[in-house]
Measured scan of single mutants.
Amino acid sequence: MFYPNSPQTSPQLTQIPYGQQYAMMQRQIQQPYHPFATTEPQARLYPYHYQGPIQQEQGGFITQQSTAASPQYVQMRVTPVDQSIMSGYPNQTANGSSSSSFNYNIHPQQQQQQQQQQQQLRHHAMPVGSVPLQDDRYRKQLIVNYLAPDVTSTDLHELFSRFGELDGARIIYDKQTNMSKGYGFVYFCHAEDAKEAVERMSGYEFHGKWLKVGYSTNPLNIVPSNSSPYVHAGSRGAAG
């Protein structure tokens, strides 16, 4: 039997160049792979992502010199942007860049009308829970959420009447099932009393439920100042 490094198959040491006398086997001759043993700084910083320098080929596509990437890492192929796409944008300079302001050559009167329309939209648009300043009635009506099913309009009136005089209180019921929808409205005579009720009743436990109280901004629920107070009856038909 002959071994790869046996004296019968191995040459004389004098015939082997210096430095390879003890590297006779194939696994010894093959050098191990060192990912950080390279002179390129990109490979030292990113050993798993770097795959060699990027070269520009004919046709405008950018390719990489090395083989496919590892399945664990996804390499994105980048193509140059066609400058003709950006030619339609206004205020574009000769080098292809555009300024931040756009001039669509709008007539001054049209621009003024658009600004007025935007101001009107901001004036009428009102986020949930906010209180408008032009109508004091919005500051007097509250919406009470997360009410228990057994709470009546009379219970709601008695709960909030300790903060001040009320114009009314009612629970909203479903017309088909005649069941409470879980929320109601309270109408105060003074805005200061309503503000105190919002601050003190939010998070209050009532009939096993934690109440959420806020201003009601729905104009359909506003009680006119010259109208008669609501009837605080315990029956659902009268309260709904």
Rank of each mutant, 00 (worst) to 15 (best):
D155Y: 07
G240K: 05
M179V: 10
G234H: 15
S202V: 08
R236V: 06
G19D: 05
T152W: 02
K212W: 01
S84V: 06
K140D: 01
F36P: 14
A233V: 04
S100W: 07
A125S: 10
K209F: 05
A148M: 07
A197S: 06
G214K: 01
Q15I: 02
Y48G: 15
V151H: 00
I143V: 01
F2C: 13
N91S: 09
P11M: 04
S153Y: 15
V186F: 00
K175N: 14
A239S: 11
S10Y: 05
A69L: 10
K181R: 14
S87A: 07
Q83V: 04
Q114C: 10
V74A: 15
Q110M: 05
V213N: 01
Y215M: 02
F188G: 00
A233T: 09
L211G: 01
Y215K: 01
T38H: 11
N178I: 14
R200F: 14
Q75W: 00
Y3M: 10
S70I: 06
A37T: 12
R27K: 12
P41R: 14
D82G: 11
Y183T: 01
R162M: 14
S100Y: 12
Q51L: 04
V223L: 09
M25C: 13
G59F: 03
P90C: 09
K209G: 01
I143N: 00
V223A: 04
V151R: 00
H34W: 07
I16G: 11
S202N: 09
Y18V: 07
I85M: 08
G60K: 14
A37E: 09
T63W: 04
M86P: 14
Y48A: 14
Q119N: 10
Y104H: 12
Y173Q: 12
I171T: 05
G184C: 08
L211D: 01
V151S: 00
S66D: 08
T217Y: 02
Y18N: 12
A125H: 06
Q119R: 13
E158F: 14
A148N: 12
R200W: 15
V213R: 01
T79W: 03
P7V: 07
Q65H: 09
I222V: 03
I54A: 11
L147F: 02
Q51T: 08
Q12D: 06
G203P: 02
S97N: 07
H124A: 06
P41V: 03
G59R: 12
A125I: 09
V231Q: 14
Q176T: 09
I16K: 15
Q118A: 07
T177P: 00
Y33M: 04
K140W: 01
P47Q: 13
Q112W: 10
L166I: 03
P53K: 15
I172T: 01
M24E: 05
E165V: 13
L147Y: 01
P11A: 05
R139M: 12
Q65V: 04
A43V: 04
S98K: 15
Q141H: 00
S228M: 10
G60V: 05
A233K: 08
M86G: 14
D82A: 12
G184F: 01
D174G: 02
A169W: 03
C189F: 03
H124E: 04
T38F: 07
R77K: 10
H34G: 07
W210D: 01
D82F: 05
S228E: 04
N145C: 03
R200P: 01
E40C: 05
V74C: 07
G203V: 03
L211P: 02
I16P: 13
T154D: 15
Q113T: 08
Q117T: 06
N105I: 04
G129D: 04
G182Y: 00
Q75V: 00
L147I: 09
M24W: 13
F163M: 02
F61A: 13
P80Y: 11
T67Q: 08
Y146Q: 01
R170E: 00
I106T: 09
K175Y: 03
S180F: 00
Q8R: 14
P90D: 05
V128R: 11
A238M: 08
Q115C: 07
R200M: 04
S202T: 14
V131T: 07
Q134C: 11
P127W: 12
A43G: 12
G60R: 13
G59K: 15
A69V: 07
D167Q: 06
Y173R: 07
M25A: 14
Y33L: 11
P80T: 15
Q56N: 07
G59A: 06
Q92R: 13
Q92Y: 10
I106V: 08
P41M: 04
N5A: 07
G60N: 12
N221L: 14
Q75H: 12
V131I: 10
R122C: 08
A37P: 13
R44Q: 05
Q58K: 12
N226S: 07
E196I: 13
T63Q: 06
Y204C: 13
I143E: 00
N218W: 01
Y22P: 14
P149T: 10
I29K: 13
Q56F: 02
A191H: 05
R44C: 03
Y50Q: 13
P7K: 14
T79Y: 03
V128E: 07
Q113N: 09
S70A: 10
S70W: 03
Y3W: 05
Q141E: 02
Q15R: 14
Q119L: 12
S6F: 05
E57M: 15
Y173W: 04
Y3T: 12
G19N: 06
M126R: 08
Q31N: 07
S235L: 14
L45K: 15
M179R: 10
P80N: 08
N226T: 04
N103E: 06
G88S: 09
